[in-house]
Design a protein around this nucleic acid. Structure first.
Lengths: 257, 257
DNA sequence: CTTGACCTTGACGCGACGTCAACCCCGGAT
DNA sequence: ATCCGGGGTTGACGTCGCGTCAAGGTCAAG
């Protein structure tokens, strides 16, 4: 008769594992000797070795019992099933590795390459780094919201930069992050911006953006918090009949001028 | 300002996950409104999205914080490190899959192919299935104990079957599993067995088997329990100066005849 | 008689949350 | 005023396969 540590040794498992198998019912509770020690025999060793073989092959403990006394067909069906799960595990990890690799390749922690390219272009235009960080954060949120539409949106933004007014706008905004809330130059920004918006609507660029309204409101609110001047700018635009910043939209009751 | 579910929605995580990140300190505890609700802003969304990007790339939560504000070198070093771990995970699972495949291929739940072949040969010799099961269980234990030596041992057993006495022995043992404990034919078995043992010693086959003594004792004890006749057989051999069954060995004080 | 190596049960810990439970808060309909 | 449904809050348990510690009882040997 064997003690639990001898059983464990001959079966190649730890004592703790044996007790665990008892606990979950995989190994039936063993007989006890006069002082309460568990006693085992060769049959226990053989059963435990079989359990280990299956466990080492990646079979979950909960499924081992059914395998131990399954006929050949059920057995191989179960094996197929388990192998499928193992393959799925591997695929999951490989997907992680791909994402990890794209992070290492420079994806600026949540930004697709197209956005990185766009921000680089802004940098080339001389836009202030602090303003770029504001844009970047917005793009991070947008990319998380509509991951499939992001490249298209960025393409549209690139096209927008062909308009000198847009370049002008960025130059103005870039400096404006420091302006006090009542800086009068804000009107200049509003003028440029309004021209751009009117042209965007004429060109039919102000179509569905795929966002839902609360998200647009949230981005607008974020913009308002971003710099002292932002609140004023949006207020002026609102006076002139525009609705927000994120989405180009006229207020329903505004005259078309 | 956002509620927790809005934050979760914009960041692509579950509410529970957000609270979990609070709990482990990955996301700093948010401010509360008058009724105790957590309130969030855009910065929270951005941070949470970054956390998700890293988590989805397989970075353990515990290591995400250090990555969020690491410089490029530390970052890519950490990424390499994590990728190594992911590769190790994959290798582990693939090792499991290999073992699983060899199970499906017929490895009789813990038996290497060489042993299966040997047992098949016994079957061909007409050995009773019940006796074969006894041998099989012993081989399972032996294979678990000395996995690297098993093929060599089986080769030696195959060679042993060239001796007609060995075939004879198996025939006798095969029938003997049913004999009552006092069956007189046991002497016949002892005679054959003793001839074989003497020859084995002469041929130098009784060398180190790689087992330690307690394991040999255990196998002997198991043998004694296996059939009614076994105890008698071993007792007779002991009278004649032999020590056990698993290991061919003379008792130290026995005359060399 | 002590020592050290065994055995026993019970419990927490890991990782990343999912899933109750029990209760609070708020706005809208009855 | 009340109810309802859909938010929010904390707290706790479950997952999986054990490792590890705690606090004690048992046993063979010196």
């Amino acid at each position: 008769m064997l003690t639990i540590s001898q059983l464990a040794c001959y079966s190649g498992v730890t004592v703790r594992a044996v007790r665990h198998y008892h606990q979950i019912g995989l190994l039936p509770e063993a007989d006890r000797d006069s002082s309460g020690y568990r006693t085992y025999d060769a049959a226990s060793v053989v059963r435990l070795i079989r359990i280990r073989v299956l466990a080492n092959a990646g079979v979950p403990l909960a499924r081992i019992e059914e395998l131990l006394d399954a006929d050949a067909d059920d057995f191989s069906a179960a094996i197929d099933d388990i192998d499928r799960e193992l393959r799925a595990d591997i695929r999951r990890i490989q997907a992680s590795r791909k994402r990890l690799a794209s992070l290492a390749a420079g994806d600026s922690l949540a930004l697709p390459p197209s956005v990185v390219g766009y921000l680089d272009r802004l940098r080339d235009l001389g836009v202030d780094e602090r303003y770029i960080e504001l844009e970047r954060d917005s793009w991070i949120m947008v990319a998380a919201q509509v991951p499939d539409g992001i490249d298209e949106m960025i393409a549209a933004k690139h096209a927008g930069l062909d308009d000198p007014d847009m370049v002008d706008l960025y130059r103005l905004l870039s400096g404006a992050v420091d302006w006090p809330a009542d800086d009068p130059r804000v009107v200049e920004i509003a003028d440029v911006l309004e021209r751009l918006m009117i042209r965007a609507i004429e060109d039919g660029q102000a179509e569905g953006d795929g966002f839902d309204d609360p998200f647009v409101d949230f981005l607008d609110a974020t913009t308002r918090e971003a710099a002292p001047i932002a609140r004023r700018l949006l207020a002026i635009l609102e006076e002139r009949g525009w609705r927000g910043w994120t989405r180009i939209e006229r207020k329903p009751d505004s005259d078309p001028r």
